[in-house]
Design a protein around this nucleic acid. Sequence first.
DNA 1: TCATAAAGTATCGACTCGATACATTTTAAA
DNA 2: TTTAAAATGTATCGAGTCGATACTTTATGA
Lengths: 184, 184
Amino acid sequence: MSGHSPTTHLLERLSRLIQNEAHAHGLKPVQWEILRFLRLANRFSRTPSAVTAYLNLTKGTVSQSLNALETKQLVTKEPVTGDRRRLSLTLTAAGREMLAGDPMDALDTAVRSVEAARGEDMSGGLRAVLSDLLRRRGGRAFGVCRTCRHYRPEPGAAGQARCALLNETLGPADSEAICVEHDG
Amino acid sequence: MSGHSPTTHLLERLSRLIQNEAHAHGLKPVQWEILRFLRLANRFSRTPSAVTAYLNLTKGTVSQSLNALETKQLVTKEPVTGDRRRLSLTLTAAGREMLAGDPMDALDTAVRSVEAARGEDMSGGLRAVLSDLLRRRGGRAFGVCRTCRHYRPEPGAAGQARCALLNETLGPADSEAICVEHDG
DNA sequence: TCATAAAGTATCGACTCGATACATTTTAAA
DNA sequence: TTTAAAATGTATCGAGTCGATACTTTATGA
């Protein structure tokens, strides 16, 4: 008997439920997650290798899944100028449309309603759990540009910034997007 | 851009991480979950249909997964006396041994450490989220015998009880086990 | 009794995913 | 500058996932 703590047990059950729900509209769980990542990632991070790192998948799975998404015309691939090994991924209009029917919206609704009703924000605890796990596994935690050590706000221009690592200018949208190069 | 709330996003990422970690020791995620369920379930609930309902899988997946677990000698199947359609599942000694190396122990460690450090118990909020989702989907929430409407404590005998639905006596271990028939 | 429901099995097809091998291109080192 | 090592992505294998569908056997209830 025995087993895991109540919270762990609930996370396991929620994880299963999330997997179960993620088969909607003819897409597979991983395909949904790739679409969600592409919606959130900045332009330096919309590549197969960033998807691989973020979702902790194998290169093979990502390559296959991207082919499936390309066939469904939800994502396009283009070569990157400057590095001929790389591909740049873009959500098509159909891809964004698909995200409007994201089955995970039900989870989001439940989470928002529970947090509002209980006056409790679980994100701090969950973020700590995720960081702990990723650190133990040696993975990167990722994060949005604005919180990165390479982030340099442009003095005078509100919302404008620069990435000191890639030496690229960042608009307001970039600053709030997920970046593979994020370094806390 | 935009997307889900921070908490939802973290639950999605944790779910992915949990899936990724669940490939240890030659078992697949679902196989691990079946082993965990069998460790927690009472004797009325160690059947393929209970596994199917609890994990929200299809009968086909459960049937296949149980065959795999039986081949690995982690689980045994026996016919049930009284209903010749049913099978009773039992964790073998090797199955319990396998659970000693459960990759989800890492999550449990992280959860316990974070909750202790922050003095925060997330189980209430997570339980509410899970209930909300299950209710919306029409699924049962399950639960342990002791909290069931059919639970009848045996007056005088500490820990002894009876199930009014199945008309069976329950020992202390049964009372704390998950039951498919659980009704809040 | 007899239709219906429930418990499991079997099969198909698309996808997941670790593992391995491979072709290109880039980067760093000698 | 040539060369070795690393990085990006693809291709293939094998076991498993999982919705869908069809089927068998056994219980149950009108």
